[in-house]
Amino acid sequence: MTYSKIIPFIFIFIFFIQCSKNNNEKNLLQASDNWRSEVIKFPLDFATSLQYSGIEYIRFAPGWGKENAMDYFSYVFLWQIDQNPQLSTQKLESEMELYFNGLMNTAPVTESNKFKVPHQSKAFFEKVNDSVYVGKIITHDAFTTKKELNLNIIIDYKFCNKTKKHLVLFNVSPKPLEHQIWKKLNKIVINTDC
């Protein structure tokens, strides 16, 4: 086996070791058992310029990595952070572009799965009220399809008085907001006493 074949395997091995180490922490997002769970501590390896301390909790729909699935690339993630994120449309656009650029540029690759993201992610948001934002992110699925991906996203913010943490909840799917997957995403709740 050549070094060019060994290096991707080492990267994937380290990636999964890191995820499994972080997954020892209980996920605050309550979902069905068939929704895959990940827990990652800030700073996020793929988006270190996001200057928060805290934890990201993630729940992936069962069909997340299957292009033709009804729930393809649909997931929920929660930032439980110490700092007030001081959300605005401009700040969310900037942070989501950083987040998705980093995520797609660090997707695990193998020798047979080489892929360079052809352009930077672009995000657009509108403020619904003081705690809810709705937007779209144009990016690429560097994990499975290698195609352009247009994601709809709803963000809900609240401050937890009991834990003194800021909670930013992200519901994400390429499906339109009227699609039934959004009912499933909305059923995922934060399991913490605030």
Rank of each mutant, 00 (worst) to 15 (best):
K136W: 01
L149P: 08
K158R: 14
D130F: 01
G102T: 06
V134T: 15
G135W: 02
K146M: 10
K116I: 15
K147S: 04
D130A: 02
P118K: 06
D141V: 04
T139S: 08
K127A: 14
N152H: 10
Y157P: 11
I138E: 08
Y133N: 03
I154V: 13
T145W: 00
E148L: 13
K127T: 15
L149D: 02
I137K: 04
F143V: 09
F125W: 12
D141E: 01
I137E: 02
K147R: 13
T110C: 08
L149E: 02
N113E: 05
I153F: 08
I155C: 12
D130K: 01
N150A: 11
S131H: 06
D130R: 00
P118C: 02
D156I: 14
S131M: 09
F124Q: 14
L103Y: 03
A123P: 12
I154A: 08
S131D: 10
T110A: 14
I154L: 06
K122V: 08
N113Y: 04
H140C: 10
N129Q: 13
K122R: 03
S112Q: 04
K127E: 15
P108L: 09
P108F: 07
E126A: 00
I137R: 01
E111D: 01
L151F: 11
Q120T: 12
V109G: 09
N150H: 09
L151D: 13
K136G: 01
G102F: 07
F143K: 03
F124G: 12
L149K: 09
K127Q: 15
E148H: 07
I153M: 14
K158D: 08
Q120Y: 10
D156K: 13
I137H: 02
E126V: 00
K122A: 04
K147E: 06
G102H: 12
G135V: 03
N129P: 11
V109F: 06
S112N: 04
Q120V: 11
F124D: 09
K127C: 05
V132Q: 10
V134C: 07
N152P: 06
V109Q: 06
K114S: 10
P118R: 03
Q120M: 14
D141F: 05
F125R: 05
G135A: 06
L151P: 12
D156W: 06
T145K: 05
V134D: 13
Y157M: 11
V128G: 00
Y133R: 02
A123Q: 08
G135Y: 01
V132D: 10
V128C: 00
M104F: 11
T139D: 02
A123H: 07
K136Q: 13
M104V: 15
A107N: 07
T110E: 05
Y157S: 12
K158S: 10
L103M: 09
I153H: 10
N113S: 12
K114W: 12
S121L: 10
T106L: 07
